[in-house]
Design a protein around this nucleic acid. Structure first.
Ligand SMILES: [Mn+2]
Ligand SMILES: [Mn+2]
Ligand SMILES: [Zn+2]
Ligand SMILES: [Zn+2]
Lengths: 148, 148
DNA sequence: CACTAAACGCAACTTGGTTGCATTTGATAT
DNA sequence: ATATCAAATGCAACCAAGTTGCGTTTAGTG
């Protein structure tokens, strides 16, 4: 368990060891991809990125398992997009991405983080227990509206 | 274009003719299923229901096309659930289902309509155009929490 | 360096959804 | 009533995303 990097967040192996697990290449590379991404990535997105890095290929099943595992241990966040495809994002230490909503442009496909906080939920009937909430907002971004 | 039923909403053929299209068995039966449903139904749900009615079977491709068509003309509403599966609900004339959120129990799978209105959205950056919003709330319902 | 639980790679499979095309049919016009 | 034809259907083949089972490899530990 070497401690290479002084910043615990940017050190991939450190982050993985921190949840008590083995820091394998597949996990580190997938997590790196998520951390450098500007938007939530699909399995296909990540597979494409990883195979561009000229390194040994990671099996697609392994990648599915790694992504679900990252989600399980809280290093990533999993949501389903409007096409029914799962997308993953890195959970920053302060969990920024869970605190705000995302806007997806139907034209160019870009995802914009909305800076305002997610609105308060309608409160649940007595006895109900909340697990998670997903808020997806779809439309056209300013660029696409302008260029019509 | 016979006008059999005095209530235009409960008359399936009427509703379909009203959007200028042919009232076929597949369309009427699918729409009926959605209108009688207490929750949004998946393609598989509807297929099961339709094949229980002892009538000629409707091809699965036709059902996919009918559901997307109903959505296109505004007779139905299409959303994607937490598993990435599309679910459809009938659009009542006053569009009730678009005005409130749904709670899905991870245990028993039941969907509960939350009576409170959907909270106000975070407002969008200048120039953005909103098309649709999807709010999904997941957790355990009171029954499942009680029976642990 | 040896050990072993944990992770990986591969093949096969499943589910949900789509495409192309030949055949049938609902509504209209005669 | 019947002919007509765009619109809708049925079928076969295909695709994309995700899962399961199992034998092999490997990260971390002593
Ligand atoms: Mn964000
Ligand atoms: Mn799918
Ligand atoms: Zn755009
Ligand atoms: Zn329940």
């Amino acid at each position: 368990m070497k401690q290479s990097n002084p910043d615990p967040y940017t050190d991939l192996a450190y982050s993985i060891h921190a949840v008590g697990a083995r820091a394998t290449p597949a996990r580190m590379r997938a997590l790196a991809a998520l951390r450098h991404a500007a938007q939530p990535l699909s399995h296909a997105d990540i597979e494409a990125e990883l195979s561009a890095e000229r390194m040994p290929l990671i099996d697609r099943v392994t990648l599915y398992r790694v992504l679900d595992w990252l989600t399980e241990v809280g290093l990533a966040h999993k949501v389903v997009d409007f096409h029914g495809v799962f997308r993953f994002s890195a959970n920053t230490p302060d969990a920024k991405h869970t605190q705000h909503a995302h806007f997806r442009c139907t034209d160019c496909g870009r995802v914009t983080c909305l800076d305002e906080p997610v609105p308060a939920l309608p409160h649940l009937p007595r006895g109900f227990r909340l697990a998670r909430v997903e808020l997806d907002i779809q439309g056209e971004c300013a660029d696409c509206v302008a260029s019509h």
